[in-house]
Structure formats: structure tokens, C-alpha cells
Design a protein around this nucleic acid. Sequence first.
DNA 1: CGCGACGTTGATTTGCCTCAACGATTGTGG
DNA 2: CCACAATCGTTGAGGCAAATCAACGTCGCG
Lengths: 204, 204
Amino acid sequence: MHQEIKDRFTVMIDFFNSIIPLKQEEKELIRQYFYLRSYKKRMFVLQEGDVCQHLNFVLSGCLRMYKDDENGNPHILLFATEGSWINDLDSYYEQKKSLLNIDVLENAELLQISREDIVKLYLTAPKFDRIFRILTERNLVILQNRMLENISLSAEERYYNLLSSHPDLINRIPQVHIASYLGVSAEFISRLRSRRARNPLMGN
Amino acid sequence: MHQEIKDRFTVMIDFFNSIIPLKQEEKELIRQYFYLRSYKKRMFVLQEGDVCQHLNFVLSGCLRMYKDDENGNPHILLFATEGSWINDLDSYYEQKKSLLNIDVLENAELLQISREDIVKLYLTAPKFDRIFRILTERNLVILQNRMLENISLSAEERYYNLLSSHPDLINRIPQVHIASYLGVSAEFISRLRSRRARNPLMGN
DNA sequence: CGCGACGTTGATTTGCCTCAACGATTGTGG
DNA sequence: CCACAATCGTTGAGGCAAATCAACGTCGCG
């Protein structure tokens, strides 16, 4: 089972490697600084009011990051599945109380790193500054495209765009969460689906 | 006037310095790689279909980045004024044709750097990897907050939030562009304003 | 079994859009 | 320097997209 854990690290090392190839010593640093933690469904990785203590890389499972409004309704900023990250960077770097929640939709295994350790990692291996720069730039581009869709498309267009760009998500995430992610009501998504089911030719 | 140009660089150097203090040699690199360029109102810094050739740091003036939809209506992703950046990172790094436009709302002076030169900059001074990582992380946090507002607040709330968080923008940018940035119609913004003018106590 | 999570459907309301017309201001060329 | 066009904001009438509220059926699960 120590072997197993090494295998998990391999997933993360491959991830970094695909951005910039790592030297052996840099791979060792990853094994040194990241730690494996499992979460069960409904557990919180981060709760509103806490200070975010680690970056989270998802090995398996599914999570969401969201904010509750004054009525207690969640508004989902991000889903994360295998091979992606889910962090409240603001709380993590500024060490301020988070306004966001991260919880588990499907039992999950995460690789985590503390703030002190990532600072050490950056200092001992500056390549990780570059890796995380590139990673963050890519996430910014993705978020910018989502922003653009949000200000320019109808709810129906956004829903079917998501459907075609992330068909995997639709299969494993309840509609009510998809609705919250898109910023529309769950009932409206249901109506869109039944409308298209009755008339498959509609809306391209 | 060579003196003047040096002064412009000082603005940028101060900007970087406030993120991470620079050594003298790193300051020299900035003077070496960035170049000053002036744009007049209505000029394009980037046009749809072109490949983004430089990163843009705004010394003065005001610009917007936007996408035209199929009807030719612009949807604004970002405004940039003194001391901020405005880039299509996707086109810049991937060297693909841009879907976005960047044009000038008020005569502007930019400091620009080409893709080849920023790669050199990263190689000769890895500190810039860290600086741009941090910069990008901050921009991601900002965009994430805007995303959250967009999926959780009404048009009215978004408008007055923008008003209080960026009062400067409201004074220099036409309402029609503010509307496009928020993803609402210009007429509706006008109605919000006149509603509150008649009844100043409304909506907190 | 019974409860909670999830999806659906109907009736009604509303936030916001569209289209159109109209001043006020700016700027631009003859 | 004036005339005319373009830009910008406002207002009205009408319409539609999407929210809200409520009820109900199904499923999985403790």
C-alpha cells in the first residue's frame, strides 16, 4: 500500500510533467511536500469562516466550491474531478477567512500541500513558480471564457454549451448543482430538457 | 525626453517592485525588453483574427477587451486603466488567432513586451515567473468574484456593486459600455438610475 | 418503512429585453 | 465657424425569458 501511495503521486507528477518536465529531485520534492487525504461524501474540505490551509489536487472523486447567499442558497463557482485543482486562493495566500465552501459530492482522494510547504517548494525549486504561473494562466483563460458566456448567452445556450463541452459532468452531477453553477433555477433546466425531449430539433 | 521615457518605466518597475522587490539588474531587463507605444482613441491594440503579439501594461488612458457576437454586439470582458494589464493570454501564449478585440476608449500609452522577449525574461530572471504567477493569481481571484456576482446577483445589485467598488470607472466610461460589461442592456441601466434618482432610498 | 434528495410540471409573476422615438452633447469636415 | 452626423443617455410600450411558489412522483438509503 505504500506502493499504492506512490502510484497516486505518479498521477500528480505526470500532471506537472505535462506542463514542464521535472527532474528527479523535483519529483522527490512533490513526494515530500504533498500528502494524501481522503474525504467522504458531504464532508467539507473548506468551510466559510475558516482560513484555507492547503491547495487541493483531486486524485479521484468530485467536489464543488461555492458560496452561500443570505438565504442560504449555494452558488457554485467550480466543480473539480480527477486531475484538477480546487482552491480558494484568496484565503490561502492572504490567510484571511474564507467566504467560500468546498465540499465533497463523491468520495474523494486529494493531494494537499500547506501554505508553508508551497512557499518552501517555490524557494527550493523555482520551476514550480513557472508551473503554477502557467496553470493559473490557463485557469484564467477558462474562467474568462465562462465569464464571456455568462454575459452574452441565454440560459439555454449556456446549458447546452456546458453539455457539449463537459458531457462527463452532466452524468455525475445532479441537475440542481448544474443549475447553481450556471446561475439559473433548477426548474428552468428541467423545462429546457423536457422542451428539447419533446422537440429534438429545437435550438440547433 | 529620454528622461521622460525612463520615468514611464519607473511606473512599471514600481508595479513589479510592489509584488516582489527587484534587483538592479532585473530593473535593467525591464527597460531592455519593454517598449513604449501610444495609441489614440478608437485604435485597436488587438483585432479579432490576429495573433496577440504582446502583453500590454497601461501607463495612461483607458482600454477595453471584448468579443463581438454574431449580431456584431460587443460583450466587454475587461476594462484597463493606469497601472493595469490587458491581454488575451490564450492567443498570446498559444499563438492562435484571437477571438477578442482590444481597443482604446481614451488615448493610451502602453508598455509592451513580445512573446519571445517574455520567454527570455523568464529564462534570465526566474523571479518574473513568480511575479506573473502572483499577478495572475490575483486576477483569477478578482475574476472569480465577478463570476460569483454574475451567477448570484440581480442586474441592479451588480450595477451598484460596480459603482461602489469602481467609482472611477463610472466617471470615465460611457454607460453603454458599463452595461455591456455587466451583461445587461443599456436601457435597463438608465432605468435603474432614474428609478433611484426619483427614490434615493431604494435598494439599501 | 419513511425520510431526504432529486427531478418534473403547472400557474403566476417579474426582471429585463427589444424596438422605437426623442433630446443633448460631442466632434468633424466643408 | 457652422452644419450635420455620430455618440450617448432617456423614456415609453410591449413582450419574453426565466424566477418563484407549490404540488407531486420517484428513487436511494439509513
